[in-house]
Design a protein around this nucleic acid. Structure first.
Lengths: 215, 215, 215, 215
DNA sequence: CAATAATCGAGACGGTACGTCACGTCTTCTT
DNA sequence: AAGAAGACGTGACGTACCGTCTCGATTATTG
């Protein structure tokens, strides 16, 4: 994303190829991999394009040819690091569906890849394209799945029909992001469980409240 | 905070003053003001000490003499910008107590001072001292007040007695921070209201659930 | 001259032609013309092969295929710019023979082609092949003609029989080159005349000195 | 010479000093010395500011702070390398006065310092300030002395009273510069002697010609 | 009142990374 | 096989800030 646009005018011929030497896929991958590695190791503060190029065995100009600045490179690298294993299970209970996925997210946040996420969010605070990339590439795809999970919960009568799903999701994930970024408190599995219980508890249909109260 | 310690060996004489020219209060204030102004205008990305010094009409060395690095300066400037008007009212209802304060917070986040907060959180991602300063100077003082507000709610029977207050506060504020930093959704008063309703709804005592359901 | 030799192994077939596409004469000429144009306009300092190729509508590789480096290209371009009109007349007097040719040389030096000569001499200071090319292609051919002119003068008794012709020619042309390169003084026709008079005056046979003195 | 002018606005106070840290004389000298050393060793072609800075143990910015480009640096370095030993003796004969100095010049041209001169003249072909510096700093001072030497010759009756001294000097030095730059012939002491004889021979007063012829 | 001492603005210092440019080579498709 | 196109690794360019330093000037306490 956010490559230098002028370069990408689509002046390819009949056979669907631009003239000239084609872009080196090897260089592209090496750059993205080095970006992730360096971000994960040193964080954003001493992340230099020069390091990336050297580590990838690539000329600096090749980096700048395709990514207009640090932010674009980080966004692309982040997006390319296909975050597998963040899918939502279907256990028959919203609460456990959500908490299982949230635990996976926390696991990522605590891993070396978490540094990349925090670097991206940090850099995004002075680069609207970058934060937009985070939303589009990371947040949105997962939200789509989350909607489905929550709708199953509604169908099963676990959640109110008129619930604002975005509000609900922010209430579930906001606390995680907050603890991740401000680091004022732990992100334990227990925290996740009680968080789900609290928030999803507030989203129960009113008729179920009575039943819950009776039990 | 975090001044260079070696310089401040306490060799003051009888009358409680060091010899030599005393520190210029004017310079100190000019530096802090310039810091806030530049952070508010350009964010953290192109915030330079050189700019601060020039803008404050001060030598660079004067900045470095009193603040050991960018982080210390930002933290100090941030702390000095006494955030008035974030106290918690006592209306007799947790929900409205909290939502009123949260609305004030959102108002700050949307103002030019919000850029300073986001700059601080961004910079904090690669500087543990800085994020610690944010916690100590900004988060903690307000948390203390918040605890009191919530405890009043418990006393009034609006919240469960065994409620984890930190979890509850993170559930209330996390979504705000998340929307503030990721900017994926609005931070309207209505959002605050429904957020309080949802989360505090999940924190009601079980006996009140029955009552609520009946009504 | 000085093409890359390895490429030019003489593997031509029966009909005296290599297989494959023949070299494009159009490209060759366009490159040489662009070289001269750019050298004449900008001098050697910001003369780039990239410019030449772009200006000639030619791939960079085509330039490098036929000229091993900048120097070779400049030398070739310079040589190709057939310097017409620098022959020596035969007026019956060495002095006027020489001065007429020297005036033509000065006219060239003062024209746009002069920039090319000075670029070549400048570049030659860090490239022995280039300065050698200048000698072989520009200086030597004219020297051959000059020798003939001077020998006619000797035959006519205008110059000493044992005169060192190279010394004499350097004494005549050296001052021109010096003023051309250092630009400390004018290169007027009058300068040429008095230069010839001075130097050729010193080359007169001694017996003529008496005669000259008597007159 | 040719320092960045804006920096040098003379805003010094009463006591004749600008505010701020004064320029480091050590750095200045180290840079000039490194410049000469590198030019003498590698010539102009692979003379880099980066090398100069590294070799002088100096930041690149310090070089650029005081010299706006390569040319200015070379000119300054060249000028600072006070070319001792190019004075004109007073032997009582113009011919030997001149030839002795010219031999010294040739000795310099053939030494490592000759590379510096040729680099300067080469670079001067695309930089009028640089060639001007050569004239002002190198050529002119020596010309002043040369005029005196020649005038002594006139006074002694060795040269014509109305001789154009600039023409005469160019006729003497032009051939040396030409051979130095084009390298088509030797610069031996014998060459110098015969050059002086030829040119100064052409500058003798007419009455002396008779005498010379008689002998 | 002089001496001492620490701070002040200014700005040069040795560095490091920046983003750009041209080098000379290469890899593609076209002629 | 040579052509145009254009990406490649390399390395110097000139700039911007970093954090440190060295000036003269200023402003206090100490003797």
């Amino acid at each position: 994303m956010r490559q230098k646009p002028s370069v990408h005018t689509d002046n390819r011929g009949r056979n669907g190829r631009s003239p000239g030497r084609p872009r080196s896929e090897g260089a592209r991958l090496a750059i993205l991999r080095s970006t992730l590695k360096i971000l994960g190791k040193h964080g954003f503060a001493d992340f230099t394009i020069e390091d990336v190029a050297a580590h990838a065995g690539v000329g600096k100009a090749t980096v700048y040819r395709w990514w207009s600045n640090k932010a674009a490179l980080i966004a692309d690298a982040f997006a390319s690091s296909t975050t597998r294993a963040l899918h939502f299970p279907d256990t028959g209970s919203v609460c456990s569906d959500m908490s299982q996925q949230m635990r996976q997210l926390v696991k990522i946040f605590r891993s070396r890849r978490g540094r990349i996420v925090s670097a991206m969010l940090a850099a995004g605070q002075s680069d609207r394209d970058l934060i937009a990339a985070f939303r589009e590439r990371f947040l949105k795809p997962r939200r789509q799945e989350a909607y489905a999970t929550l709708r199953r919960g509604i169908a099963r009568g676990e959640l109110r029909k008129d619930m604002d799903l975005d509000l609900l999701l922010d209430s579930l994930y906001g606390p995680i992001y907050m603890r991740f970024l401000i680091r004022h408190d732990k992100m334990t599995p227990d925290f996740i469980d009680r968080l789900c219980e609290l928030v999803l508890g507030g989203a129960k249909p009113y008729q179920r409240l009575r039943a819950a109260a009776k039990s």
